[in-house]
Design a protein around this nucleic acid. Structure first.
Lengths: 145, 145
DNA sequence: GTTGAAATCAATCGTAT
DNA sequence: ATACGATTGATTTCAAC
């Protein structure tokens, strides 16, 4: 993982379909040297996958919320993970400092679908209550992963 | 935007480097028909870009926070967008319902770097104060974009 | 949307550093 | 151990249908 790898990663972040030749031209390597490094980065798990960024308003998943989770007593991160894994509307979640135990970013196709997903989160044994902030307008979506 | 387009998008989400021929084999089109559709989806802004998913722990960006933004008076989404665009640590942001004006998801290389980025957000004219929740452990990272 | 041809690229190997 | 250069097969691309 040297500066060459970082350069390759930066270029792939901007365009995951760039040819190895083009990448090599930018970082100063031959196409095959670049391919070898990319293969290694994928094998090592540094590059987790190649994907596209899709306009969320187009595929219908344009109803979002940030939800604070308040649990009873102490809750192990593993347990929260188990609960949240079962709800596909959960895009992103982490335990946090502050009064809430976790913050959950959810995305659904509609308000009813969001409410339904929220219900599935809330029904979990140790969840005491939640506080949701519905997203009115999306400002930034720098999805570098 | 029909079911064929949706199928193509789903396949590209899983592997943005899949060949047009392979995609065509899955959705029942020729390679050139697939390319034509992908080109159109990109031109129409449905596909915003081709990127890679990078292990955040490897490239060092493993310090995250959810930040609530409280502004003075009314703040136009456009203005918030302008402020936040200048801070690369902002991964994701949206205006929300509730007492906060916006929620900002940030990612930095360290706590000092996060603090510095937060300072750049706070310095903006209409930002009154912020409330941050530092992420302790990441639970879910379903990066469908 | 399809086919087919030409240009480009990917993947592999031997070789050099 | 890593990069390079050339070759072969696959893929992209663009034309005409």
């Amino acid at each position: 993982m040297d500066n060459l790898d970082r350069g390759i990663i930066d270029l792939l972040r901007q365009n995951a379909r760039a040819s190895y030749g083009d990448i090599g031209g930018s970082v100063g390597l031959s196409a095959s040297a670049v391919k070898r490094r990319v293969d290694r980065l994928v094998a090592d798990g540094v590059i987790r996958g190649f994907t596209i960024q899709v306009d969320p308003t187009v595929d219908g998943y344009n109803t979002e919320a940030y939800v604070e989770l308040f649990c009873r007593g102490t809750v192990a991160p593993d347990e929260l993970l188990r609960i949240l894994s079962g709800v596909p509307e959960v895009v992103d979640a982490g335990t946090v400092t502050g009064s809430a135990d976790a913050i959950v970013h959810m995305r659904a196709r509609s308000i009813p679908a969001l409410e339904d997903a929220l219900e599935r989160v809330r029904i979990a044994p140790n969840v005491d209550h939640t506080r949701s902030a519905i997203v009115l307008s999306r400002l930034i979506h720098r999805t570098h992963d």
